[in-house]
Nucleic acid binder design. Structure first.
Lengths: 153, 153, 153, 153
DNA sequence: TTTT
DNA sequence: TTTT
């Protein structure tokens, strides 16, 4: 049966995106996103609880993330849950769950550091010139993974 | 900042719920849910990809799950992502991600086995009499976690 | 700023889809979907409240709806809210809100009538032969609007 | 059958909230929220399309909205669709759809006007003293409708 | 007008 | 380990 596997997150980045350029013009960006929930415990004290999420963004979307997202950025993201499993050296099953982001939009949060946004020059330097998007979306657009990418997952 | 951490799943149970009655009248039900996605690969062949999710349900909701859900049941669930982390014996960081279900509704899928639904007697036997819900929801209602439960997580 | 306008519905169809074939090979299917909520009022009585939604599905998705959905079908749908407004003959502002469905999946609900599913022959008769999908999705797949359709809305 | 009727919106307010204090300590806040979508048309031009939504917030949540939300505020909101219908003087069926907000969180967007947030004094003046919340949430918390309110809808 |  |  067709299923639904949908995640909606709104939070802040714990660090700048980590971007890797792979063979075949593939790109992946990894993000750490914190979602904080605040509630009152039974004694009436306000408690904050933060959950950290590993996000993975592929393709053209990853380049947008690289260009616009920074540590501290406030982000709305939609995606799906993916759990990798493997056996470690001790023969034990290991699991790691991440969110495959399919679309996101940057919100008003102010990123960390001096530049409130990386200059195109800067980020171009970190990647092959051929990877430069010909028509980059603006910073505050909803960008979507077209999923016509034939990535190996 | 207040965040959003929301998961929406629709799939089928891989096994009957595992229910544990804890001290202090707490109950937890653990479920394995499969969400299957079907798409065409680049050669035009239809491919099915199944993702397995660990669901955790607490309190009165867990009792409803115990009573009505079975291996094969089709389920719509909403909840949030929670990742537990700890150090194993080798001192390595270990992670396990689950979905804390906050509401669910059972869909038309036919559960496995002879009884299409566990009899109240059966499931009552597995738990302290005091835990019997005075006014159980019907099978196909949207049931919600009130979260006034002060559970330790 | 980029926004989010997302609707998630799970309910039953109040009638068969109404399908119209337009010029230029466009197709639109209109559905009426009921979502029922059940809760206890202050006197402890269980109350059911049903909300009716106007769904609109375009393109290839509409053809899938025509082929597989029937009065009574249980449906999970995602889409976005669209409100049309116009002035009536009295010069008053009129509004009508509908859900533009972008993907859906048919659930286990049993449709009405003798056939539990319209035969392809039947539904083909109602539309131009050229509109027949070359590779129709199966009934219980998640089908998505590609939105490369350049429709006038 | 239990259904799902869920709306997720992220956008900006077109005006300050309109708040009404009703008998029996009930409060309702009405908001106009714009969600903007941006895409490229077939000629490659970027097009912006804005959808306006009527939001309705009840009870304690309404008071938080009154206190913190302003024209221009960026808002994430969850709720459900409600359509009112009635007959007008000409005997015609009329419909009006709104979103009953069940939780929201204010994002980083800067509200319009001189004060970036209404002072408690200001907003207290507009309402009966008895309506003052004893322990107001902070501006950027996710606030939720408890729905134990027995409102007539 | 659906469903349980 | 589910489902179609």
């Amino acid at each position: 049966m067709a299923g639904v596997n949908k995640v909606i997150l709104l939070g802040n980045l714990g660090a700048d995106p980590e971007v890797k350029y792979l063979e075949g013009d593939n790109v992946v960006a990894k993000l750490r996103l914190a979602t904080t929930e605040s509630y009152k415990d039974k004694t009436g004290n306000r408690v904050e609880q933060t959950e950290w999420h590993d996000l993975e963004i592929w393709g053209a979307l990853a380049k947008v993330a690289e260009q616009y997202l920074r540590k501290g950025s406030q982000l709305y993201a939609e995606g799906k849950i993916k759990t990798d499993s493997w056996q470690d050296e001790q023969g034990q099953n290991r699991y790691r769950t991440k969110i495959r982001v399919l679309s996101f939009t940057m919100l008003g949060g102010k990123p960390d550091g001096n530049d409130n946004q990386a200059s195109p020059q800067q980020s171009t330097q970190q990647r092959p010139a051929s990877a430069a998007p010909t028509s980059a979306p603006k910073a505050q657009e909803m960008v979507s993974d077209t999923e016509d990418d034939d990535l190996p997952f």
